[in-house]
Amino acid sequence: MKTIITSSDRSFLNISELRKYGGLFKYLSLRDVFVRYKQTWLGFGWSVIRPLINIVIFGGLSYLVDRSQNFKERFVMVSAGIVFWQLLSTTLNDVSNSLTSNANILTKVYFPKLILPLSNILVCVIDFLIAFALYLLVFFWFKGLPPWQIIFLPLVIFYGLVFCFSIGLIIATASVKYRDVKFILPFLIQILFYASPVFLSSTFVLGLNIPAWLKMLYQLNPLVFILNAFKYCFFGQFESFDPLYIGLSFVITLLVLFFAIRYFLNFEKSFADYI
């Protein structure tokens, strides 16, 4: 096997090489899983407690702001949003930090760098599955069996992961050179929290007395569709279903994904020079 090193900037998405590094992907993923709650007394209990605290705070708040449903209904609804949001936001956050937090490996060894952001997803998913299992029990307790729409759930989760991974990949690449991103990220996540139907339902937001362009912007956020779709799987009802915006959100997600990978590959070879 012959390898050629040149001064060209671009690298290409080399799937067969990525697969050759499957072992590295596995061990990096496992490392993150093993290390996440090391030296904590609660261990993986935290993957339940973190969303639980959010559920209590925002479930209560949401009921105060919007009383269109009774408390029980609202609690089950908001919990669904928050459990899923926890997955989306930790994925976004961890993927964004995946390059700078692994600088020591990046500057010492060659491997396809895409492995780093990818390997961060597993630990987020495991966190999510624990909280999600608990949510299923809660749902069953209050509402019984979920409707047939539940079969769409894996697709919705996958779509959400793709979108958050893409945004995270852009941020991760930018943060190699510009550490400002580290400071912007928490605000971005906070803004997305309010700009997506996590605890404020989209019916409520669209019913607010705000300028039309703001509502348009809100609907262009792919997370609005993603979170509503997640709730659809559990409640069988689609909130503010608008095929135009759903189509647009698909297009936006694809564009973001495409741009993220292009941007990443254009800079991949220079990471070690800047990090």
Binding site: I4, I5, N102, I105, L106, K108, S270
Partner: peptide
């Protein structure tokens, strides 16, 4: 790990580099 500004390198086979002990 870093790319050259100019020039070209060719090598055969698998290369492992040990620039530091205990990377990762």
């Amino acid at each position: 790990i870093v790319k050259p500004t100019t020039g070209r390198i060719e090598f055969e086979g698998r290369m492992a580099s040990l620039l530091e002990v205990g990377t990762g």
